[in-house]
Simulated assay, not measured.
Amino acid sequence: MENTGEAQEPLAFVSYSWDSETHSNWVIQLATRLRSHGVNVALDRWDTRPGSDLSLFMERAGDDTYRVIAIVTSAYARKADAAEGGVGYERKMIAPSLMKNLHGNRVIPVIRDNPEGKLPRFLGTAKYVDFRDDKMYEDRYYELLQELHGLPATPKPPLGNNPFIPQAGDDFPGTSLHDQTRYSMPALEGAVSFDYTNNNGHFIVGTGERKFTLDFSVAAHGSIYIYNTPPNIKTVALAPGVKTPKEVGDASSWDASSRYRIIRVGDAAILRNQNDYWAAVFVDEVHTRESNPTRENLVKFRYFIPAASRATFDT
């Protein structure tokens, strides 16, 4: 392995078939961008020259220090199953490492130009990154990048205590009615109905680095305050009339110079947390006890947190 000074960075070998010049250029663009984001990518177009031993280069696919990004087009799947050409040789290199560790994830299938999403037999039913829809390219790219850097796209929340077993300091068992998890939703998107007079007006969305504590208080029927005061919130902005993630556009373009914003029904709050992830909160209903037939203080909202720490909402 060459000493490039990048030993601390993830190593990735790109396995693909030369289906067309257009496809080869797509692969080069993907590999180039991954390198710009700290992934030490090995690619035949960069790492071989006329006269090079191609088989020696392709044997890197069997080196356990590399993750393998398999760009699985329909042609790639056919060639791998038929043990044909360079793809067939790389399959021969990869397969033994898969047999050594049946629970491993060294190979990351990337589906491209493959309408049926068919994987070659040697990859079985491996979970893949789906690049078939160009409109979803950014989200799929960051999904792949996070995997290569060892960051889960949706972090697993920590395991809590059984609420029916008394813990040290509890006065009585069965504290589920006071469980703080009632005021959180760890998914990266969802819909929430929340009594903003409970839990000091706090509701948590997301988890890990993508965690946002929403701090609410009532303004009036049909509008609500959202503050930037929680420790994990850096800024909050108002996006009037914005109702979907696609309408957010560049999240950094909304004015976030104030400590709080008044969000009316049909508006969105755009938040940035201390880890520089972004979230959009779309307010659908706000009720006070006086205005609500059920006599509840209530805010209903939808939220969306992009998987990547980027300001552009293009979903």
Rank of each mutant, 00 (worst) to 15 (best):
N292E: 10
L119Q: 04
E90A: 10
D63V: 08
V107M: 00
T197C: 02
G38M: 01
Y196D: 11
I263K: 03
I69K: 03
P231D: 11
E21N: 11
R91A: 14
A308Y: 05
E285C: 01
T213Y: 05
T48V: 08
F216Q: 01
N199L: 00
T197V: 08
T294H: 14
A219R: 03
R182I: 13
H287Q: 03
I233M: 06
I94A: 07
G88M: 08
A61Q: 12
E189I: 03
V218M: 13
S217M: 08
H103G: 01
I71E: 07
S15N: 07
G85I: 04
H202L: 15
S97W: 01
R295V: 14
E6H: 07
L188Q: 11
A280Q: 12
V299F: 00
M58K: 14
F57A: 08
G88L: 07
L148E: 04
D134A: 08
Q29N: 12
Y66M: 10
A70W: 11
N162L: 02
L98M: 06
L98W: 09
A95N: 07
Y225D: 02
A70G: 11
P293V: 13
S193V: 06
G124M: 03
D139N: 07
K118Q: 10
F203K: 15
R210C: 00
E2I: 14
N200F: 13
D113H: 13
A256I: 00
A280C: 02
D314L: 04
K79V: 00
F212I: 14
G206F: 00
T197W: 15
N161V: 08
I204H: 11
E143N: 00
T48C: 05
K100F: 00
R121F: 06
Q8Y: 08
T229L: 12
L151T: 13
F194D: 09
T244Q: 10
I262E: 08
E138L: 10
L56T: 15
A61L: 05
R272F: 01
A42C: 05
V248C: 10
S74N: 09
I224T: 09
V242H: 07
Y183G: 04
R45K: 10
R35D: 10
D53N: 15
P155L: 05
G160M: 11
V205I: 15
Y141A: 06
T73M: 00
K300Q: 01
P155N: 07
I233S: 11
T65E: 14
N3W: 02
A31S: 04
H221N: 15
N200H: 14
H287I: 08
S176I: 15
D47N: 08
Q180A: 03
R264P: 02
P306R: 02
N161C: 03
G160N: 02
Y66W: 13
P240A: 05
E2C: 13
M99Y: 07
R261I: 12
N273P: 02
G249F: 07
H202M: 13
K100Q: 04
K118S: 05
R132S: 03
R67M: 10
Y277W: 06
I262M: 14
T294N: 12
P152Y: 02
L123Y: 01
L214M: 15
F164P: 08
R259E: 14
T315E: 02
F301E: 04
